[in-house]
Amino acid sequence: MVIEKSVLAIITTNKEKVAGGAPIFICNDFDELQKVAANLEAIIDGIAHALSDELFIIVKH
């Protein structure tokens, strides 16, 4: 089976809510979260999706 989409990174300001497989980046506030997400998006050619204000994921499509 070919996996077409995968979560490459998780960026959050609330570490209580995340765990598991993908690399997790914990940020202090929303500004930092956005910067980290923007950089990661550019670096790994994925798309930054917002699940909520405190939780972003980078997905490779």
Binding site: Q34, A37, A38, I47, A48, H49, A50
Partner: peptide
């Protein structure tokens, strides 16, 4: 609508970053 991009009422995709 939040992070969701819509054309008319049809959902296109989720874009997280405000600058995007």
């Amino acid at each position: 609508d939040g992070a969701g991009l819509y054309v008319d009422n049809i959902y296109i995709m989720n874009i997280g970053l405000p600058e995007r």
